[in-house]
Amino acid sequence: MMEGSGALDLVLSGDPALYAIVRLSLVVSLSAVAVAALIGLPLGGLIALTRFRGRAGAIVLLNAMMGLPPVVVGLAVFLLLSRSGPLGSWGLLFTPTAMVMAQAVLITPIIAALTRQAVEDMWSEYRDELTAMGVGPLQRLLTLLYDARIALVTVLLAGFGRAAAEVGAVMIVGGNINGFTRVMTTAIALETSKGDLPLAMGLGLILIAIVFAINASAWALRLYAERRIG
């Protein structure tokens, strides 16, 4: 795969290996966003809407965890999934699943922390109205998550951007296996190490273009939605 230099040639030639890499990048990072959203959205909403001892500490911790170093997350997941680790028998190390797990761990705090902020802001606006309608705690959470949906799209995008851009964690837990766990970022690292800097840069531009395209469509969706629902 990836003979020749210049990303443009690569794209134009429709190199199936390149598309497989792009596809895997998207599948892994979108799956990670899905997993992180499943945990982070309710978790953030719950922290926003409940009062408990140590809540302030939990919020500080969550905000701090937004800056988790990918390499450290990768190493932790690696140690967990390695054959010599506690979950070694699952045989997940060096698989796309392991990469999804690492990225999900990385971005769950981001999604949870930003969700907490969005839901808390909205709750201060909605509190009286929802209380007067007799809305119970669970329904309250669901209502706020639903009504904050436009803001939460941006939250998920932030998580996706972080997941798609990181290389440290997926390199460690995925192993950059050709045709199996090689994604855009690890391919870029590999081409850099092979000294093919133009190709590495080309791949980088493709990655940026993809992230840009996803953000642009989400932004368009947001503008449309804001016009629709205010």
Binding site: E125, Y126, D128, E129, A132, M133, G134, T143, D147, R149, I150, I229, G230
Partner: peptide
């Protein structure tokens, strides 16, 4: 609230 309701000066519209 059971059978009471309120209309605020600036009601909040759900999105």
């Amino acid at each position: 609230p059971r059978r009471r309701a309120i209309v605020f000066q600036q009601p909040v519209m759900l999105r």
